[in-house]
Write a protein that binds this DNA or RNA. Structure first.
Length: 840
DNA sequence: ATACATACC
DNA sequence: TACTGGTATGTAT
């Protein structure tokens, strides 16, 4: 048994943690050796144990799934039938994104872990984005180093451009020098790094360093003129190559790109010739289908290690398998997941670049050495709230839901949230809630202490810009008589407040009590108001609309010309990484704040609010009303809440008499200044986090052997492009015929009557139809998200997806219900917004 | 609305 | 010694 357990664990670990050579630059490594190192470095740690646990959970899910699969009868089926990163040198050692530094060091003892420098990344990102904008002013950045672009318009214009507009010089100043610089870089790559690799790596690898030389074209011609230059052609490939060339000239960073008919494919393609390369997938059905057939599901954005494992358990590893198993998958997966898989299997993806959406949440979290003392947890919590409030202020945001995230020393994560009836943004408001959530959690665990290794605070449920603006105005108006905004806080809010609070349940149960007086601080520099996005249409709505549009257009001329509809994804490689220890020193910088806090560790939000406002008493048997600021002699929150409600309805439009000064008020100007300083350092950390998005926080992101510290050189940018080109008309698919009762399904795309009333078959037809229509005739506007849904908790048959057997005349519905709103789902399917708060 | 899991960078 | 941080999304309850 012992053995069995051990090996199970080992397997779990391996499948979960083992080297993932999915990414470029990791081919031909000695996996076994690397995995051994990873394994030995990790085993026994709490993290490891927790990973095992999670692995078991996934396995259970799979087991459950298999059970369900076993219950599927022929009938069913028949019916259904119907990271920062490591640089490329480091990757040769098996070092990869998201790998902890201590393991990376074992794989590559000579590794130098470079601290992150997000200011630098932002600067570079800005430059790159300027170049992107030349090709698509509406490009969508997905992160600092990655974006989708639609090349369609650019290509159209480009056709008539003279050579001069397609000519680009080598690096500025003196060209000769520029070339030297570049060449020097290459030498460093190939001569320095490589030998060292061989000598020092504990890991053997089989193939020699790949490496496409950087995209230096062999342009002799332009040299005489006092500067080397190159004339780029008019094709997509040339345009993209030109873009990458410009990026490299400008930033000394290389970029990779994928060119494909939609974003999903473009993303995959961008990985194909990474680093410093590009790959074009032609926009033909044949090419797309061929491409998809052999594509491992894991390559597709949105299919992560869990989804992959579940699919693998069903014998599905490539996208072609997906296509073959749609019926089965429809019974085992949720509708959303299934739909996404179907689109993937058909090579479908988004062909438009959605507008940059507004953020939906903002958070900050920190990992530290074990923290068990209530006071320290409390002060840390406050610190987080301060950071968060600062960030919120920068963007002029207010949100109603505050979430506390806790991770204990065993890596178990918990989140606790509370939604208020009004939006908050200041330190005190946030802290009041977070503190309460923390207390509740502590109480729940007691007498065991909370042994935390991470704490985070998040705000979500932002009020819309529309809501915010008047709010803002009224506050400003209210304050006009007055002083600086930092001292007023709750005053101006009164009217709004009163309205909101009165109409909503202001306070609730002890578990759920909410702070009564938001005491919103005014914020200057309120920028707000990005216009609301266009409502997202569903896949079918779009297709249908497009078709109508096309039909209309067809009446007149149908000469779209070039027919190059493109999207581009670009990603810049990761730069550097912060030291491993960076996250450990956080613990209690603000121990002094403890003095500001009431003695009892955890007080109710209201109490805290009052006390930090300097207006409340802190007697243990009384609570301070946030409205009238009188003591209420009770510790019964129901009583207290009644008082507040009363207070709110009784004393309407009267400003609260108290100089609240909450926000930053508990810091004197001096210390506030210091705080800012600290924030700066922290800023780097946060930026790092940004960076860390690309892989790991301090650990793995920029692991570069043999790199100059703080230098960007030798890093690469990766670009993914997608394009719709070569429109070819394809014949519509033959409607599948199964024939049945008198029901009739009509394809919303081709408008042909379908013989089968089998929805699965019908749906498949629709998708095929869309695929062709959209891809070829229409330049295809599918609404597949750029960032696909995750596959959390796939469900199973019993939940029974409603297979609407309704067959009507004229209008047919998919289970998706084309006419019904994409619902939250489709909406949720919107792009994952990874734009950092630091770049906005 | 809340909690948790998955995914991406 | 010893596995991140920020954001989004999906599912269950």
């Amino acid at each position: 048994m012992e053995n069995g357990v051990t090996s199970t664990k080992a397997e779990g670990f391996l499948s979960r943690m083992a080297l993932n050579d999915n990414k470029a630059g990791m081919e031909g490594l000695d996996r076994e050796k690397i995995n051994k190192i990873i394994m030995e470095s990790s085993k026994g740690s709490r993290f490891y144990e927790n990973e095992l646990k999670r692995e078991q959970q996934v396995n259970q899910r799979i087991e459950k799934m298999m059970l369900q699969k076993a219950q599927i009868t022929e009938q069913h089926l028949k019916k259904a039938q119907a990271q920062s990163t490591s640089n490329y040198h480091a990757r040769k050692y098996g070092v990869r994104a998201a790998m902890p530094g201590f393991i990376a060091k074992k794989l590559c003892p000579n590794l130098i872990i470079v601290p992150t420098n997000f200011d630098k990344y932002r600067a570079v990102s800005h430059e790159i984005r300027e170049i992107f904008a030349d090709y698509d002013p509406h490009f969508q950045p997905m992160s600092l180093d990655e974006a989708y672009l639609d090349f369609t318009d650019h290509l159209e214009q480009r056709q008539s451009w003279p050579d001069s507009l397609r000519t680009h010089r080598f690096r500025a100043s003196s060209t000769a020098t520029g070339r030297l610089i570049i060449q020097k870089r290459e030498e460093q790559i190939s001569q320095e790094a490589v030998p060292e690799m061989k000598d020092l790596s504990p890991v053997l690898f089989e193939d020699s360093p790949n490496s496409s030389p950087s995209c230096l074209p062999g342009c002799e011609d332009g040299n005489a003129a006092g500067g080397a230059f190159e004339v780029f052609g008019k094709s997509v490939e040339e345009a993209v190559r030109e873009m990458r060339f410009r990026i490299e000239q400008r930033t000394m960073l290389t970029a990779s790109a994928g060119i494909a008919p939609n974003t999903m494919l473009a993303k995959v393609c961008s990985d194909k010739n990474k680093p410093n390369g590009q790959y074009r997938l032609p926009s033909t059905r044949e090419a797309v289908m061929d491409f998809i057939q052999t594509l491992p599901v894991r390559k597709v954005s949105g299919i992560g290690k869990v989804s992959e494992k579940m699919l693998n358990a069903l014998g599905i590893s490539s996208c072609s398998h997906l296509g073959q198993q749609m019926a089965l998958l429809s019974l085992l997966f949720s509708e959303t997941a299934w739909h996404h898989l179907m689109e993937v299997s058909l090579g479908l993806g988004s062909t438009y670049i959605p507008r940059h959406e507004e953020r939906k949440s903002m958070s900050t979290e920190r990992t530290f050495k074990e923290l068990s003392k209530a006071e320290e947890q409390l002060s840390l919590c406050r610190e987080l709230c301060e950071d968060l409030a600062g960030d919120m202020k920068k963007e002029g945001l207010k949100g109603k839901t505050v979430t506390l995230k806790l991770k204990n020393v065993n890596f178990e994560v918990k989140t606790r949230a509370l939604t208020l009836p009004y939006a908050v943004a200041t330190v005190d408001e946030i802290f009041a809630v977070a503190k309460d959530l923390l207390k509740t959690e502590r109480d729940n665990e007691s007498p065991q202490p909370l042994r935390l290794r991470l704490m985070g605070v998040r705000i979500s449920a932002f009020v819309s810009s529309d809501d915010k603006k008047p709010l803002q105005k009224s506050i400003i108006g209210f304050l006009q008589a007055g002083k600086s905004d930092s001292s007023d806080s709750s005053q101006g809010m009164h009217q709004k407040l009163e309205k909101e609070n009165v109409s909503s349940h202001s306070f609730q149960t002890p578990q759920n009590r909410q702070e009564g007086a938001p005491g919103l601080t005014t914020q200057k520099g309120f920028k707000g108001s990005q216009t609301g996005g266009k409502p997202q249409q569903s896949f079918f709505q779009r297709a249908f609309a497009k078709r109508l549009q096309l039909q209309a257009a067809n009446a007149s001329t149908h000469e779209e010309g070039h027919g190059n509809n493109s999207s581009v994804v670009t990603s810049v490689g990761t730069y550097s990484q912060k030291g491993i220890e960076s996250s450990t020193e956080i613990v209690t910088k603000k121990a002094t704040d403890l003095s500001d806090l009431p003695q009892n560790d955890f007080v109710s939000p209201v109490e805290a609010h009052a006390s930090t406002s300097g207006c409340g008493a802190t007697g243990s048997e009384s609570l301070t009303c946030p409205v009238c600021f009188r003591q209420v002699e009770t510790d019964n929150l129901n009583v207290f809440n009644r008082h507040i409600d009363q207070c709110l309805s009784d004393a309407p439009a009267k400003p609260i008499q108290c100089t609240v000064s909450d926000t930053e008020s508990d810091l004197d100007p001096e210390s506030e200044h210091e705080e800012r300083e600290v924030d700066k350092q922290r800023g780097e950390c946060e930026v790092e986090e940004e960076k860390a998005k690309n892989s790991e926080d301090s650990k793995s992101n920029s692991i570069d052997p043999q790199e100059d510290q703080h230098s960007l050189k030798n890093y690469s940018i990766q670009t993914i492009l997608s394009i719709n080109g070569d429109n070819k008309t394809t014949t519509s698919p033959q409607p599948q015929s199964c024939n049945d009762k008198g029901s009739v399904l009509i394809c919303p795309v081709c408008h042909l009557t379908q013989d089968s009333d089998d929805l699965i078959i019908f749906n498949r037809h629709v998708d095929l139809c869309l695929n062709q229509e959209v891809l070829h005739e229409l330049g295809g506007q599918t609404s597949s998200p750029i960032n696909p849904p995750s596959f959390t908790n796939c469900k199973a048959i019993d939940r029974g997806r409603p297979l609407p057997m309704q067959a009507a005349k004229g209008k047919t519905k998919r289970r998706d219900s084309p006419s019904s709103p994409p619902s939250k789902k489709a909406k949720g399917l919107g792009p994952r917004n990874t734009i950092d708060k630091f770049f906005r």
